[in-house]
Amino acid sequence: MGYDAKFKVWRGDDEKGELRDFTVEVNEGEVVLDIIHRLQATQAPDLAVRWNCKAGKCGSCSAEINGKPRLLCMTRMSVFEEGETVTVTPLRAFPVIRDLVTDVSYNYEKAREIPSFTPHENLEPGEYRMQQVDVERSQEFRKCIECFLCQNTCHVVRDHEDNKKSFAGPRFLMRIAELEMHPLDVGERTDAAQDEHGLGYCNITKCCTEVCPEGIKITDNALIPMKERVADRKYDPLVWLGNKLFRR
């Protein structure tokens, strides 16, 4: 049943840090977060880790395991060989605070820049009528648990700090798509998606979709449809000509 596993866990702060070796007991059915908790309880009581529901629903325990962005609570130990060393590091796209905890405030700032839901005027509470087929696209995006793994993996900001200013990241471009497809939203969002929130930076290399623990098809269902809507408005020569001629 149980065995001793080798772990490398990054410990440090914003000035220095290193991968530190641990040997720790593993039992049947456990996930990586269980092991981190065992380290806290037995070997490293001040090991900082963010977690909450431990059921893959809150998106708090995002980290990188063997270099892959994942939720600690949804990564079962059984996916590793018994002799394999498991490396756990903080997210590498955000400033580190301590150990496995990073400063994810970038995401909250971006969230604030996306214009909110704008319903039809004259629509009173209780009068909303929407068909299931019309809400399903946006509902898929609302499954998002805001673990920010997609934001962390996206090379646009992961590999280029300076792009953080002009790029909202997959999670918030998906938020724009969600509102754009909301049956009762009247906001005009496509131009801003391209001009203010950096949709053009996305080169659809799909890492956001690959790491999404909720299995949301971010690229195919949100980002590409948004790019097509942008093309409708900005890169369609007929529309462009019409805009030039009539200065709409």
Partner: peptide, 29 residues
């Protein structure tokens, strides 16, 4: 750009499909 998820790309700067020539990708339709 990038070679695989969570593998750093070798380029110093990146502007994606925001300007020429790659902005032409929008002509796919």
């Amino acid at each position: 750009s990038p070679p695989a998820c969570a593998v750093a790309e070798p380029h110093k700067s990146y502007s994606g499909e925001t300007k020429l020539p790659l902005i032409v990708q929008n002509a796919h339709r």
